[in-house]
């Protein structure tokens, strides 16, 4: 197999495949989410099985000969048959990946990184705050909470996007909204008159969902500045620093802690993150250009 380690590879002794070698996956489904964002269903082209993942983890996706980018996994962790990624065309590599069609091959390395705190959050009210493409890395956590619905208190998802046309997973959002025991609130920054939902910043939605700040775990994913504002509001309401988790983004080249690009203070975002407790990174978030 193209992906197996060589017989004399030092990695073989540790029973892991070469972590720098992408494994070929075939696109079995492509959904256009917005004008620049697509969702792929991927299955291994080598006939093997898919490694399990924890919500919050990411893969390096490889466009043949062009390059590689870190993309969070956005499928259901309870469904190991298919690997799901939502990605936005923003650079040369993501543009090439987004242009791929059903049947094409995409390279995959992973999964890498830390997970959302599904265990630690047991018994808590859950507040998920997503901004823009940031809903994609949170979706597996939402699936996990729904699967274990009775393990958690109130579950709220608040989601902000730029315009109604840029909302991800619209059909699913509508489905969740209709479910008993879920608060799903969506807002946009700009809208035309045909939008019936709220217009305003995502943090305003915090006052629309119910949670007990003393027993709440908040999960945040979106632009860093949005997360900073959301954290300020959460802590003002009384949510503890070690109950706020955020998914950080930095330049990544290797995803295994060697290339040094993703350093965020002492943390390597690829292996110590991408999911961090706010308590652990509060000092760093306050420093510009760190």
């Amino acid at each position: 197999m193209a992906t197996s380690a060589t017989s004399d590879s030092p990695l073989r002794e540790h029973g892991v495949a070469d972590p720098m070698m992408p494994r070929p996956f075939r696109i079995t489904r492509k959904v256009k989410e917005t004008h620049d964002t697509v969702t792929f269903d991927l299955v291994p082209a080598d006939g093997g099985t898919i490694a399990g993942f924890a919500p919050g983890q990411f893969n390096m996706l490889y466009a043949f000969g062009i390059g590689e980018v870190p993309i969070s996994i956005s499928g259901d962790p309870a469904n190991p048959e298919v690997l799901i990624h939502t990605l936005r065309a923003v650079g040369a590599v993501t543009r090439a990946l987004c242009d791929a069609r059903r049947g094409d091959i995409v390279g995959v390395r992973g999964p890498f990184g830390t997970a959302w705190p599904a265990e630690q959050a047991r018994g808590d009210d859950i507040v998920l705050i997503a901004g823009g493409i940031g809903l994609a890395p949170l979706r597996p956590a939402f699936y996990r909470f729904l699967t274990d619905r009775r393990t958690y208190g109130r579950i709220s998802l608040i989601y902000g996007a730029r315009t109604p046309a840029e909302l991800l997973y619209r059909r699913e959002l509508e489905h969740w909204r209709g479910q008993f025991g879920l608060d799903v609130e969506v807002t946009v920054d700009h809208a035309a008159a045909d939008w019936y939902g709220p217009v305003g910043v995502v943090t305003r939605l915090l006052s629309r969902v119910r949670f007990d700040p003393i027993d709440t775990t908040a999960l945040l994913c979106g632009p860093e500045v949005m997360m900073r504002f959301a954290i300020r509001d959460l802590t003002r309401l009384g949510v503890a620093d070690d109950h706020i988790f955020l998914s950080m983004e930095r330049n990544m080249k290797c995803a295994i802690g060697f290339c040094g690009h993703c350093q965020f203070g002492p943390a390597f975002v690829c292996k110590d993150g991408p999911v961090f407790s706010y308590r652990d990174v509060a000092r760093l978030l306050a420093v510009a250009e760190i």
Binding site: S9, P10, L11, H14, V16, D18, P19, A54, Q57, F112, G113, T114, A115, I256, G257, F258, P266, F268, C270, K271, D272, V275
Partner: peptide
């Protein structure tokens, strides 16, 4: 740094500590 020594890498909560085969050999 490259995971070839006896020294423990910084604590990682999620992912294994890899070692770099190019360096290790």
């Amino acid at each position: 740094v490259f995971g070839a020594g006896n020294g423990a890498r910084g604590a990682a909560r999620g992912t294994p500590n890899w070692h770099d085969p190019v360096y290790a050999r």
